[in-house]
Each structure stands twice: as structure tokens, then as C-alpha cells.
């Protein structure tokens, strides 16, 4: 359990994080989203003590970070793995040596280090690349090495700072899958900093949105993202959808239940009201459910009735002339 209470962090008397409160239960994948420079990385680094803070507290399990002296802090960091956007591999060490490095810091014996590193590299799908140099690997492969390295000390928590931001979409997906699998296999708590909504949608259970050092939205991923809250709109980019001349819009929030998309079909057949679908964005979330928004056009005098019918079906619907997508 990671518990952050009233955390405030200043650089040169300017607060970059203010009154941050977050609780992350064990085994969850937690997304920290926000635009560039809002303090995401800083918050992440506070969690493993790479960054000090000015007030508030961070408790990990029963450990209060501020109470640790330097040696205890080093010991504590053993239980937290970390991966970075630019992989941060040592260029002059082989893949195997890179994975062994954290164990070297803790003076494991050579045979154990090698065995463990090989097993981890096997696990991330790089069993064949043990003796390659990082410069001979693709971005995705480098991140796999970094993941293996981060797991070498058997951490309970994995911190990811924009771990996929330097990768193309297909590779991003495979890395996210790997992280999600590891999260399940090892019951690892994962904290993911990202500015990409797709990352949050595809792997995170819970999320927070940070704006200028403050948390402006928090909760289960679907609750946050399907809400119309301004922070979400800002992050995704505000796009407006306006009703065509002479029509009204109905916005449907499709979530959770599989029968929802079918319900749209059924109502089209049975409601006796003609409507068109002008936009729909429904995607699979980490939970495996399909969720998103759908926008319908309908004659203004029928809008109220149609919206009510959807609501009777258990679908959140509202009518109007314009919506934020």
C-alpha cells in the first residue's frame, strides 16, 4: 500500500506539488496522467525517495519515508524497481551485465546473479540476447532489458516514468502487456506516469490526473475517463461536437455491460424514433470491458423521449445541442 498524504514539494520556493493525497492498494496498476511539466516525474521520484519533499508524508506499507536515514533509504529502495522513458541502460555493459547491476550493488554472489538475470531475460523474451550490447537492441528490446533489471531485486513496487513514450504504438502495446502480465504474476504494484491516455486505458486500474502540481481528478480509470470532468477534457484535448442544423444530439455513455451496444440497435428498431449515429468511440479497457461514448442525432422534439428510453435501458443518456467529445 502506497499512501501519500498532503504532500508538498517545492523547488526554489515554488511549489511543484501541492497537497497530493493518493492511496494505491497492493497489486494495482495506478496511472498518473498529466501534461508536460505538471510534476508527474517529481511525484514518482518522491515515492522512492529520489526526491525529498517539504511537507506531508509518504508511507509505503508501514514505512514512513521521512523517517529513514541514508542507509535505511538505500535498503528501502531495493524493494522498488524503476524504468524510464529513455531506458537508462549502461551503454558499455552487455544486456546480462545490465540486469545484474542492481544485484551487484547489493553484493549478491556471482552465480546467483547470473542465474537470476538469465531467468529474468528469458521471462521478458530476450533469452537470446544475453551478450548483446544495448546499442544493438531496438527501443522495445531495451525497455524489456530495463524491466528485467527493475525486477532483479524482487521489488514489490514498479515505478514507470513514461516507459512507453519513446516507442511506437505496436511496441508500446507489447510492453504494456508485459507489464500487465508481470503485475498479475508477481502481484506487483505498478505506478505509471504517462501523458498518453491510451496507456492508461489499456493497463491501469486506477488513475489520477495532475494539473500544475495538484490532483484534479482521481478514481477508477473508467469513472474518471467517462466523466465529462474538465481535467479529462483538457488532457484529451477539447473537441466539441455540435448538432447538425435542425437536429439535437444525444450523448450515450456506454460502459460495462456487453448488451449496451445491442441496446442501441434494439431501440433503433423498437422506439419508433429515427436517429443517426454520428460518432462513437468505444474501446476495451484494462478490465476487459468495452466503454466509451456514442453520439446520436435526432429530431429536437423527439430528443427528450429517446433519451428517456435509453435511460430506461440503463444507459446514461443526455440530450443537447453540443457536447465535448
Amino acid at each position: 500500500m502506497i499512501e501519500i498524504k498532503d504532500l508538498t514539494k517545492k523547488y526554489d520556493n515554488k511549489a511543484v506539488l501541492e497537497n497530493i493525497n493518493i492511496k494505491i492498494p497492493d497489486g494495482r496498476i495506478y496511472g498518473l496522467a498529466g501534461q508536460s511539466g505538471v510534476g508527474k516525474s517529481t511525484l514518482l521520484r518522491c515515492i522512492n525517495g529520489l526526491e525529498s519533499f517539504d511537507s506531508g508524508s509518504i508511507c509505503i506499507d508501514a514505512t514512513e519515508l521521512n523517517s529513514l536515514n541514508e542507509a535505511e533509504m538505500r535498503e528501502f529502495r531495493r524493494s522498488i524497481g524503476m524504468i524510464f522513458q529513455n531506458f537508462a541502460l549502461l551503454e558499455r555493459k552487455s544486456v546480462l551485465e545490465n540486469v545484474m547491476l542492481p544485484m551487484e550493488f547489493w553484493k549478491y554472489d556471482r552465480a546467483h546473479m547470473e542465474k537470476k538475470a538469465k531467468a529474468l531475460l528469458e521471462r521478458v523474451g530476450l533469452g537470446e540476447k544475453l551478450n548483446s550490447m544495448p546499442s544493438e537492441l531496438s527501443g522495445g528490446q531495451k525497455q524489456r532489458v530495463a524491466i528485467a533489471r527493475a525486477l532483479s531485486l524482487d521489488p514489490k513496487i514498479l515505478l514507470c516514468d513514461e516507459a512507453t513514450s519513446a516507442l511506437d504504438p505496436a511496441i508500446t502495446l507489447s510492453i504494456l502487456e508485459l507489464i500487465a502480465d508481470i503485475n498479475k504474476e508477481l502481484n506487483l504494484t505498478v505506478v505509471m506516469v504517462t501523458h498518453e491516455m491510451s496507456v492508461i486505458k489499456s493497463v491501469c486500474d486506477d488513475m489520477a490526473i495532475i494539473e500544475a502540481g495538484h490532483i484534479v481528478a482521481e478514481g477508477k480509470v473508467e469513472d474518471v475517463l467517462l466523466s465529462d470532468a474538465e481535467p479529462v477534457r483538457k488532457l484529451i484535448g477539447e473537441r466539441k461536437i455540435t448538432a447538425p442544423v435542425g437536429k439535437d444530439l444525444i450523448k450515450l455513455v456506454i460502459r460495462g455491460k456487453e448488451e449496451h451496444p445491442e441496446a442501441v440497435c434494439e431501440l433503433a428498431r423498437n422506439s419508433g424514433i429515427a436517429f443517426g449515429i454520428i460518432s462513437a468511440e468505444i474501446e476495451p479497457f484494462h478490465s476487459g470491458e468495452y466503454m466509451g461514448h456514442m453520439y446520436l442525432t435526432v429530431d429536437p422534439e423527439k430528443a427528450e423521449t429517446l433519451a428517456r428510453k435509453f435511460i430506461e435501458y440503463g444507459i446514461d443518456a443526455s440530450s443537447g445541442k453540443e457536447f465535448y467529445l
Binding site: 538505500r74 535498503e75 529502495r77 524497481g81 537508462a88 549502461l90 547491476l101 533489471r149
Partner: peptide
């Protein structure tokens, strides 16, 4: 690269270990 140093720190390396092993 500062990130490499940060990574080493994150794994619990001491300053001297960072100096000589990184």
C-alpha cells in the same frame, strides 16, 4: 546520462558505487 545515475540510485546504489560501477 543523468537517468543512468538516477536508475542506479533507484536500485539502492551508494555514491561510491555510482562513481566506480557506473
Amino acid at each position: 546520462d543523468k537517468n543512468i545515475v538516477m536508475a542506479a540510485r533507484a536500485f539502492g546504489a551508494s555514491d561510491m558505487q555510482i562513481m566506480f560501477k557506473v
